[in-house]
Simulated assay, not measured.
Amino acid sequence: MHGRENLTTVTEFIILGFPEYPELQIPLFLLFLLIYLIILMGNLTIIALTCLVPRLHTPMYLFLCNLSFMNITSTSVTLPKLLDIFLTKRQRISAGGCFAQLYFFIVSESEEYLLLTVMAYDRYVAVCHPLHYAVIMNQRLCVLMTAGLWIFGILYGAAYIAFLLCFSYCGSNEIDHSFCDLSALLKLSCTSTFPLECFIYIMGTFAALPCIISTLVSYVYIISAILRIRYTQGRRKAFSTCSSHLTVVILYYGTMLCSYMRPTSTQSLTQNKHFAVLYNGFIPMFNPLIYSLKNQEVKKALSKLAAPILMCRDQKNVFSSCDCKTSYLRKR
């Protein structure tokens, strides 16, 4: 596109993906396809377990189910288009599709860091106030917190899109990223992005920073409570209920802060693309693995659901073996 155009006249953008690796497009397609399939399989398993196993109908697994849904949402609006770029070289995306992709990504990601804070508070109550857990984390509070997360995410994403609709673009319409990322779109703007940058830092100060502080304070109390437990087995059991969530918190906050909480002038699009692979690919892929491998309740639920399948398979093998023996005896 040439000259200075208002955003309302833009009809499409071009997502470059990873053109710096022309010889690796097919291997990258296979890698990201595998990542996406693992994300879907792992997170859908967590959702299915939460819905089907009554013992998992607790606040912690309600929040974990929402986290899995957000992981599926954030990757499903970005990775399929990237896979299409790798395989068919169709890099064009309509302006509406681009902003829809960014909107749903922002909604899911903003909800996720709030949800991690809520989950930290849930673990704090479980470890530090176990006798009052059922009273504090009651069904009404959990539903209100979950609804609040969704309302905040929807409004937060709408605010970003409202800012972007006021920008003008000139020159290239090529997005040097793996999807319609905010930082890449800001690089294309030929008008001042200062208002949006101020909004980002204001929200970081009044929303993201309190979430981080609340999570850190929760874990300070949790760790201090665990250290006061006299018995080693009790300490190990208490820590096992929090270790998976703490691992996810460190991975998520680390990559998001490194990617977004930097001045736009110092941001490298190549670095942002690599960070995007972490928080939009590997973290959603590892989340269900971390929670299932480190959580005894999830392991027991998986074993309980898998037991009938294994039993049927064993019975089928027994019947098959009997049929073979009967056939052999008849021939004799």
Results as ranks from 00 to 15, higher is better:
residue 291 Y to M: 09
residue 120 A to E: 05
residue 4 R to Q: 09
residue 183 S to H: 08
residue 244 S to L: 05
residue 290 I to E: 10
residue 16 L to K: 12
residue 13 F to K: 09
residue 323 D to V: 01
residue 291 Y to S: 09
residue 303 S to A: 09
residue 199 F to T: 00
residue 217 V to W: 07
residue 92 R to S: 15
residue 100 A to N: 12
residue 238 A to S: 10
residue 110 S to H: 01
residue 242 C to H: 06
residue 49 L to H: 12
residue 327 S to R: 10
residue 297 E to N: 09
residue 331 K to Y: 12
residue 236 R to M: 05
residue 284 P to W: 03
residue 34 L to M: 11
residue 259 S to I: 05
residue 126 A to F: 02
residue 179 F to Q: 07
residue 130 P to I: 09
residue 81 K to Q: 15
residue 69 F to Q: 03
residue 98 C to F: 02
residue 278 L to Y: 03
residue 250 I to C: 11
residue 245 H to L: 15
residue 7 L to E: 13
residue 127 V to L: 07
residue 317 N to R: 08
residue 216 L to Q: 04
residue 282 F to P: 00
residue 144 L to A: 01
residue 193 T to G: 11
residue 184 A to N: 12
residue 65 C to P: 06
residue 268 S to P: 08
residue 243 S to M: 10
residue 316 K to C: 03
residue 210 P to E: 00
residue 214 S to V: 00
residue 37 L to H: 04
residue 235 R to N: 04
residue 147 A to P: 01
residue 64 L to S: 06
residue 282 F to E: 01
residue 135 V to R: 07
residue 312 C to A: 13
residue 126 A to T: 01
residue 165 L to G: 07
residue 145 M to A: 00
residue 177 H to T: 02
residue 299 K to Y: 11
residue 282 F to K: 00
residue 204 G to W: 03
residue 262 R to K: 11
residue 290 I to N: 06
residue 246 L to E: 02
residue 200 I to N: 03
residue 101 Q to E: 15
residue 200 I to V: 09
residue 185 L to F: 05
residue 202 I to L: 13
residue 160 Y to S: 04
residue 250 I to A: 09
residue 294 K to Q: 14
residue 214 S to G: 02
residue 292 S to Q: 07
residue 276 A to V: 12
residue 205 T to I: 02
residue 157 G to T: 04
residue 27 P to Y: 06
residue 267 Q to Y: 00
residue 219 Y to V: 06
residue 79 L to Y: 12
residue 212 I to H: 04
residue 286 F to A: 11
residue 117 T to D: 02
residue 97 G to R: 14
residue 234 G to E: 08
residue 180 C to A: 13
residue 122 D to K: 03
residue 242 C to Y: 09
residue 247 T to K: 11
residue 139 Q to E: 07
residue 321 S to Q: 11
residue 134 A to G: 01
residue 239 F to R: 05
residue 271 Q to T: 15
residue 140 R to L: 03
residue 7 L to R: 13
residue 97 G to Y: 14
residue 98 C to L: 02
residue 296 Q to R: 14
residue 188 L to E: 10
residue 89 K to F: 15
residue 96 G to Q: 13
residue 262 R to S: 13
residue 165 L to Y: 12
residue 137 M to T: 03
residue 45 T to C: 10
residue 291 Y to W: 11
residue 190 C to I: 14
residue 131 L to D: 14
residue 80 P to D: 14
residue 277 V to A: 14
residue 148 G to M: 00
residue 318 V to Q: 00
residue 306 A to W: 04
residue 305 L to H: 06
residue 202 I to M: 07
residue 117 T to L: 03
residue 284 P to E: 03
residue 52 L to G: 07
residue 303 S to C: 05
residue 21 Y to K: 13
residue 253 Y to F: 13
residue 269 L to G: 03
residue 186 L to S: 06
residue 143 V to C: 01
residue 43 N to I: 04
residue 174 E to Q: 07
residue 323 D to T: 02
residue 67 L to W: 01
residue 84 D to A: 15
residue 54 P to A: 11
residue 218 S to Q: 01
residue 25 Q to N: 11
residue 190 C to Y: 12
residue 134 A to S: 05
residue 67 L to V: 01
residue 173 N to H: 13
residue 153 G to Y: 00
residue 25 Q to D: 08
residue 189 S to T: 13
residue 193 T to E: 05
